[in-house]
Design a protein around this nucleic acid. Structure first.
Length: 308
DNA sequence: AATTCCCGCAACCGCCTACAG
DNA sequence: GCTGTAGGCGGTTGCGGGAAT
């Protein structure tokens, strides 16, 4: 990418970044004050990279705080470690993530949640920062375009695994912790939805715990987030890229809506209906949205991941 | 052509944990 | 057991470039 090419030309970090380093309480700043020198912040120059690479070649990784003392590099240890790990370390892959990598990230995030370091460990040559950035960018885009955070097959797979785990934990007296946690999670979520009716964010009040194993058949169709009044042309485009099996026909967009409990709102066909009524459902029925006054929170109904 | 918006990315920040003294 | 330090991790910010208007 052009950023990689251009980065070498950025020698100096913005002035305010130098100044701010004298004021904040970060560990980097503390070390800079202790040494009486101001440590540089901001983007790295090629010469700084060269110093760091040279240092690691001679002394190996670790002891990052010693770099400032042993070389002319005026960077804090943390900054050095990050620069090395994310950019200078041999074997790092650059460029766009492959289809296989994206798929793996989806699966791992579905399982592990935001454990970027763990996910990165499963993807040789990729860094946690890279994966995290990718995920956040994509999540933002999908949130805007009403797409699910996980592809269908990843959800299915996760649900199957969760179901197996749950069945195992429920039946195994030795390992009843997960079952208790899930039961508790379900109870909490039920309380949450009862206490918070209306068009609020439909994220569960607990994180990284799935209660979906108990209703796996229903979940996939419930696991979408919608924003009223979004640009549906964009949405369709995104849908196409997300479900590459559907080749750009209207059916691709329609396929998404077919999975809704109810079809598009008959009153306003551009706005999907969020009214959702099902006996025993945790979600409040007949929730109406106005395009002129969008809900304050993001309407997010995301599959929590299982971290056990 | 100018402006605005969005995206991708690098880097920073704050918190946490492990470990040595 | 306490304290200080280093390193790791996840969340967030800010910048530059390109697309859209």
């Amino acid at each position: 990418m052009s950023r990689e090419i251009n980065e070498g030309n950025r020698i100096e970090a913005p002035k305010d970044q130098f100044e701010s380093s004298q004021n904040d309480e970060s560990s980097c700043s503390r070390s800079s004050l202790a040494g009486g020198t101001v440590l540089k912040k901001g983007h790295w120059s090629p010469s700084e990279d060269a110093i760091l690479v040279d240092y690691v070649k001679k002394h190996g990784e670790g002891n990052w705080n010693a770099i400032e003392k042993r070389t002319e590099l005026r960077r804090c240890g943390k900054s050095c470690r990050l620069r090395w790990a994310n950019h200078l370390k041999p074997g790092l892959k650059k460029g766009a993530l492959s289809r296989e990598e994206v798929e793996k990230i989806d699966q791992l995030h579905c399982k592990l949640g935001s454990k970027w370091a763990k996910i990165a460990a499963m993807l040789p040559g990729r860094t946690d920062n890279e994966i995290k950035n990718y995920w956040h960018t994509r999540a933002k885009r999908y949130q805007r375009t009403c797409l699910p955070h996980y592809p269908q097959h990843v959800l299915r797979q996760a649900l199957d695994e969760n179901q197996q785990t749950l069945n195992y934990s429920m039946s195994n007296r030795e390992d009843k912790g997960l079952g208790i946690v899930l039961q508790s999670a379900m109870h909490d979520s039920a309380k949450f939805f009862k206490a918070n009716p209306g068009p609020q964010a439909y994220s569960l009040p607990f994180s990284d715990i799935s209660f979906t194993g108990l209703q796996s058949q229903d979940l996939v169709s419930h696991t979408y987030s919608f924003n009223p009044g979004v640009n549906h042309a964009i949405q369709l485009r995104e849908t196409e890229s997300y479900f590459p099996g559907n080749h750009g026909s209207m059916a691709s967009g329609h396929a998404m809506f077919e999975q809704l409990p109810h079809g598009p709102n008959p009153v306003n066909k551009n706005v999907p209906s969020f009214g959702y009524s099902e006996p025993g459902s945790l979600i409040q029925p007949n929730v109406n949205f106005s395009t002129s006054s969008p809900p304050t929170g993001t309407m997010k109904l995301e599959l929590p991941s299982l971290q056990y």
